[in-house]
């Protein structure tokens, strides 16, 4: 693949440069490139200039190697299916080093606040960058995992719109789970 440059314009009219190979990590951009409707600059009205560099950083890291990230993703599951003679310790070690390195990079990359997480998640969804979407969604899931409904409502500014009767019924359901949850 040639290193043709692609230009992306954020919602606030700032232009960013990205290699075509890296841009192909995004299904949406890939379709635009392959569709031949590339007209100099691709406008991204849903991605702002403070998020777009973050997206580009991810694409640079993962551009052109969609296959390998898939491999990591299915690692644990695939292992069960392999047949005995295929087990190769050396290959396993190399894979482990690679995975560890990627994991470290991802840890540093994902160090941001809730707002950026949300914007990045939307951008990944909009641009169809599967790996980034999974990464951000997984983080969002881990943020709400252990919270009570009250904490969720407070944190996300949600008003309970149940009628008083429904509310009562819901509290019963909530209580049912409470004693078990206390130990987690």
């Amino acid at each position: 693949m040639s290193s043709t440059k692609i230009f992306l314009k954020s919602s606030d009219d700032k232009t960013f440069e990205i290699d075509e190979t890296a841009a192909r990590a995004s299904e949406t951009l890939k379709n635009i490139i392959d569709g031949g409707c590339l007209d100099g600059v691709i406008p991204l009205p849903n991605v702002s200039s403070n998020i777009l560099p973050k997206v580009i950083e991810y694409c640079k890291k993962h551009g052109g190697d969609n296959g390998s990230s898939k491999k990591i993703a299915n690692g644990g599951v695939d292992k069960d299916k392999e047949i005995l003679p295929d087990y190769d310790e050396e290959e396993d070690k190399r894979e482990k080093v690679r995975v560890d390195e990627l994991k470290k990079w991802e840890e540093e990359y994902m160090d941001f606040d809730q707002q950026v997480l949300y914007d990045l998640m939307l951008a990944a969804n909009y641009l169809h960058i599967k790996g980034l979407l999974d990464l951000t969604v997984e983080k969002a899931a881990s943020m709400i995992r252990g919270r009570t409904p009250d904490q969720i409502r407070e944190n996300f500014n949600i008003n309970s719109d149940f009628t008083p009767e429904e509310e009562e019924e819901m509290i019963l359901i909530e209580d049912e789970w409470d004693d078990e949850w206390a130990f987690d």
Binding site: Q114, Y118, M121, L122, N125, L133, V137, E138, A140, A141, I144, R145, G146, T148, P149, I152, R153, F156, I158, N159, S160, D161, F162, M170, I171, I173, E174, W177, E180, W181
Partner: peptide
């Protein structure tokens, strides 16, 4: 984050254990 995009919500919720999700029915 949790109300505008149902696709994202389904994606996030489907990564949670059943117990957590069952509790979140009470949110709204």
């Amino acid at each position: 984050i949790v109300s505008s995009n149902e696709d994202l919500m389904v994606n996030i919720f489907s990564r949670l254990p059943v117990k957590a999700i069952s509790r979140f029915k009470c949110v709204c």
